[in-house]
Amino acid sequence: MLEVIKSGLETSIQDWPGRQGYLKVGFPWSGPMDHWSFRLANVLVGNAPGAAGLECQFIGPTLRFTREAIFALTGADMQAKLDGQPLPQWESIAARAGQTLEMSFAKTGARAYLAVAGGINNDAFFGSRATFQKGGLGGIDGHAIKAGQVLPVAVGGHGRAGRRVRLDQRPVFATDKRWQIEVCAGPNDDWIDDAGQQRFLTTDWKLSSKSDRGGFRLDGPQWTFTHRAHHKPPENGSDPANIVDHGYPLGAINLAGQTPIILVNDWPDGGGFINPYTVPGCAFWKLGQSRPGETYQFRQISVATAQARAREITASCAESSIE
C-alpha cells in the first residue's frame, strides 16, 4: 500500500494500453503518455509491461510505503529521494515499510513513472484501471491521487532490487528544448494545399501552455487549404477546417479553425474539425516528455515505418533490456 502524503501536481493511476474498446460510446483510452518509460518501469519490477502504475506530471508526489516493496522510477527526473537519500532512475529499488518516497519538480522531461511490484490494484472500470480525470472515471473516484488516500498495491509481486535498464534501451530526452516528432499524413491531408503541407513540415511549432492530457495546442503560422475545404455541403460547417462530424484518431493533429491541437491520451474522440496529420504511437513518449514552450518539428514517415518503430519500442520493453 502507498499512502499519499503530497499528491504532486497531477499524479494519476494509469495502465497500458488503457481503456480500449469503447470509442463508439466516447471513452478515450487514457493510459500513460510516455508508454515507453512506463512499460520499462513495470518490467524493472517484474510486472507485466502494462500493469497499473503512477504517472507524475511536472511535480511528483510524496508517498509512504506501508509495507516493504520493490519499485522503480523512469521517465522525467524528479529528483526522487527515499528517506532523504537521492535515488537512481531506471533501476529497481527496495523500500522498507514506513519509508517515504519524496519527488520534486522535473529537472528533465515532464512525466515520471512509478511502478511497484505487484502493480496498483484499484478497481478496474470498463476493463482498465487508468484515470480519465476530465471524465471523472477510472483511477480512484475518477480523479488524480489526493493527499490522505491509500493506494492499494497487489500482493504477490516478485520483483528484485538492483535491476537496471541498459543505457542504450532508454528513451533519450531532448536537452535543447527541441523535439523531432514523427507524423503520418492523413486522414484529411487532402484538405491542405501544397504550401500548407510544406509549411506544416518546415515550421518550428511551439507547444502552448494551454495543453493537457486531452490535447496539446500548438502555436505557429496560418494554414491554407485546397478547393474542397471551401466548396462543400453546408452541413460540413462554414470554416475551411470544418467537416461533417467524424471520429478522431488518437494522435490526430486536429485543426480547430487555425489552431492545431494534437489529440493525446484523454482525447475527445469525435467532432467537426479535420485531422490533416496523425502522430503515431511511436512518437508519444516525446509528447509526454516535452514541456510548454518547447519546440516541435514534424517529420513525415509512412504508416509502415511508424508501425515498425512501434514494434521496436515494444521489443525494448522486455527482459532483454534489463541488466
Binding site: C184, P187, P233, V244, P249, T278, P280, V303, A306
Partner: peptide, 24 residues
C-alpha cells in the same frame, strides 16, 4: 455526396478512417 467507392484513409499507425460521403 455519397461516394461511389468508400474512401480509406490512414490515421497514424493504428487507425483507418472510412469515408462513405460528405453529407448528413
Amino acid at each position: 455526396m455519397i461516394y461511389d467507392e468508400p474512401r480509406f484513409r490512414p490515421g497514424g499507425d493504428r487507425f483507418l478512417e472510412i469515408e462513405f460521403g460528405d453529407e448528413l
